[in-house]
Computed example of a mutant assay.
Amino acid sequence: MSSPLVKQVQARFSMAGAFASAMLLAISLSAHADDSRLSLADRVSQLEQAVQNRTQAGIEQVNRIQDLQSQVQQLQGQVEELQHQLQQAGEQGKAQYVDLDSRLGRLEAGNGASGGNAQKPVQAAVAPAAQAASAAPAASAAPATPAADPAQAQAAYNAAFTALRGGQYAQASRLFRDFIQQYPDHALTPNAFYWLGESYYVTMNYQVAHDAFAHLLSAFPKSEKAPDAMLKLGYTQVELKQTAAAVATLKAVSRQYPGSNAASLAQERLRRLQLSGGQG
């Protein structure tokens, strides 16, 4: 049998072991609680960092979109300028079709080098019919023939228009002048003046084209070709560096023929003039 002393010692050792176990358990629980708190804090920090990163990414994306929009606007402006240059190059390419007849037509106009109306607005360009008629491209040297029947007149007009559509601009201008000379009071005469102006415009005989369009507006102000003639008159003034007159003419197109295709084109040309500082 164990002595009371041994039992007492054993009891003390048992209590000491229990106390030690309890202490270890408390330390372990405390450490686990600290680890849990640290982990939660880390998670909150990570979430905050993720939100911040996403916010920054969103801001960067908005900035990139704004940069792209700005680049698109710049590219649109460049495309418009290239289109204008391409149009100019095409017109210059068409000049190869010009022969002695087109030069003769400019001389016949009488004021191809005058430039006296450089700063006159459209009201001056569409002055009284007698004044504009003196500036209009003259007919060919052939004498006027008596008015033929309607079929002959239509055939003559069709021949001139076919030449124009085929790129035979010198021939077209000659045929349209002949038509105007032979049929000055025909219903198609205003159209003939318009296409005569076009035949000179595409071959860069801008002064003669100017005179044809101006005469149409003066002699046939109610013609269905009047809006387009006024628009092209403004175009020729741009090419002739008559900027003030061109602006006045193009504004008059929008004012007198609102809602028309000519008015829309006039507004576009005015916008291009403003963007280019008045250089067309």
Rank of each mutant, 00 (worst) to 15 (best):
S28Q: 12
T162S: 15
Y235N: 02
S14F: 10
R103V: 14
W195E: 05
R255I: 04
A172S: 13
D211V: 04
F19K: 13
G90W: 08
S2W: 11
F19T: 13
V44Q: 12
L47G: 06
P184M: 12
A118Q: 13
L270D: 03
Q119T: 15
Y169M: 06
L217Q: 02
G197Y: 08
A135Q: 05
Q168I: 05
F161A: 11
S140R: 05
A159F: 02
Q168D: 14
G90E: 15
Q279P: 04
V51C: 09
V238E: 10
T55R: 14
L100N: 10
Q237I: 00
A209Q: 03
G166M: 04
A109Y: 03
Y257T: 00
L216Y: 00
P121Y: 03
D42S: 13
N191Q: 15
P128S: 05
L107T: 06
S28A: 15
E91I: 07
G259S: 04
G259H: 01
S70R: 14
G93D: 13
A26E: 06
A18N: 07
A89I: 11
S260M: 02
A109P: 00
E80D: 15
Q10E: 14
S264A: 14
A252K: 04
P121V: 07
Q69Y: 08
G277N: 04
A129D: 07
A41G: 05
A245L: 06
D149F: 09
A151L: 12
Q85F: 09
P221V: 11
N191F: 09
D34P: 01
A129E: 13
Q274D: 09
G93I: 11
A127I: 08
S223A: 14
N117C: 11
T203M: 01
V79L: 15
Q168A: 13
